[in-house]
Design a protein around this nucleic acid. Structure first.
Lengths: 241, 241
DNA sequence: ACAATCTAACTGTGATCACAGATCGCGGCA
DNA sequence: TGCCGCGATCTGTGATCACAGTTAGATTGT
């Protein structure tokens, strides 16, 4: 604590100062991240009910951080609170699914195009790594659905992050948060889609287009991927209305 | 309270039952809407500091609903909480402004295109009404900045709502929430932009294109409008970095 | 008179209490 | 034996208390 001159911000640049930004991580933030992961990975099925107090007990915190996290998820409609005061992950009507898919095609298609233009070499290598991980599961005789879901998500977001537009990535995260329960929960139920579905092929085209900095082809590959997943979900007949 | 048969939902269809859905409106929701309106209309300048307790006292509620609303706004970066535990509306760097503008061009451009294709006659009439209101202020010798801001917002969102994609409208609201303080606060400071800027002309082109169901022209008019406002803001030199 | 230090007030965050409303199951009447 | 009605319990929401950390004002020492 040398205080030769002004005591403010004149500390020696030791290790402790170089840790840098220890970002503000509140308990509510942690709970929010936890629930978000569960939703995006399809761990929570549509219609699944939950209570603030049970979540709090499960995570070992008081209900205060939980209600903050849930309030945030409710506000962007990733969760919903019924008139009965019951919190659940929303059911998906066919109309809402189509709407979300339309928005995804526009937004994520734009992101793919932009990623092909702005990608760095590091971005490309990350995509290739996750594409390989997904392929391993798709070709495996005993595919692990959750591993495939994870690799698929990482691949897509590696592309989206390559745009250099974090705001856009945040928007897409919001979309995945809403559609994740339907998309990935069904994938876990019927893992044979990994082989039959053309996801692996679209991923290959996507990464190749990004590597060649071909925006139009990247958009086409990604929208084909999204459309393929969407038509599979619609064919399951699990959507309402 | 006649209970001839089952007491559940067998009430006579009087006025009280026809009020219908009184949607769940919590206090936190009200506070959130209030703060959102202040941000989007530029009532709160970038850098403006605020405290939960002062907001609570101003609005006449306890701090519980306020902290919920503020937490939601912080989570999508419409507000920020400094390491000092001070809540403020974020400052805008030039880089972040350019990023937000790029995303706006893509997302709102798509929305304009879609609106031109899907608009109803009622949608069109709403747009025309708000275009007229904006024009009245732009041509007025004594333009009211807040009225112009309001008309501009209503016109844009009349277009976005015409897409029939409420998810997309929500995304754009999020973008306006972040960029509103800069955009509209500067507009209020220098209201002569109403006359010099070409906003009125772009609005005319936009509404005409939507009326003609010309998607490409609608996108062009809207992106020109956004670009015009952006270049004006950049010219003020009020952005950081 | 000036500056350094210390204290008191204020900050967001987490925990606990309080409450209206809804749900479900058990007891009692027919 | 079957069904209605009431109460215990659980729900989210709001208020209040508690606390660590920061800030700014005032006071004191030089």
């Amino acid at each position: 604590m040398s205080n030769l001159s002004s005591p403010r911000l004149i500390e020696t640049p030791t290790a402790i100062t170089q840790i840098g930004r220890l970002e503000r991580v509140t308990l509510g933030e942690r709970v929010h991240a936890e629930l978000r992961e569960l939703l995006m990975s399809g761990e929570l099925a549509p219609g699944q009910r939950m209570s603030l107090r049970s979540i709090a007990e499960t995570l070992g915190v008081s209900i205060m951080p939980v209600r903050e996290a849930v309030a945030r998820l409710v506000s962007d409609q990733s969760l919903e609170v019924l008139p009965n005061r019951a919190v659940r992950v929303p059911l998906m009507s066919r109309a809402r699914f189509c709407e979300l898919t339309a928005v995804r095609l526009a937004v994520e298609g734009f992101a793919a195009e932009e990623a092909a233009r702005n990608r760095s070499d590091a971005d490309l290598m990350a995509m290739q790594r996750f594409e390989r991980a997904f392929l391993d599961q798709a070709r495996s005789p005993d595919p692990q659905a959750d591993q495939a879901v994870r690799a698929n998500k990482e691949l897509h977001f590696a592309v989206y992050r390559a745009t250099g537009l974090p705001t856009l990535v945040g928007i897409i995260e919001g979309l995945w948060l809403k559609i994740g329960p339907v998309l990935n929960f069904d994938l876990k139920i019927s893992p044979d889609r990994l082989r039959t579905g053309g996801a692996a092929e679209q991923h290959r085209r996507l990464v190749a287009a990004v590597e060649a900095r071909d925006g139009a082809s990247a958009r086409k590959a990604l929208t084909d991927d999204v459309k393929g997943a969407a038509s599979f979900i619609e064919s399951t007949g699990r959507l309402l209305n």
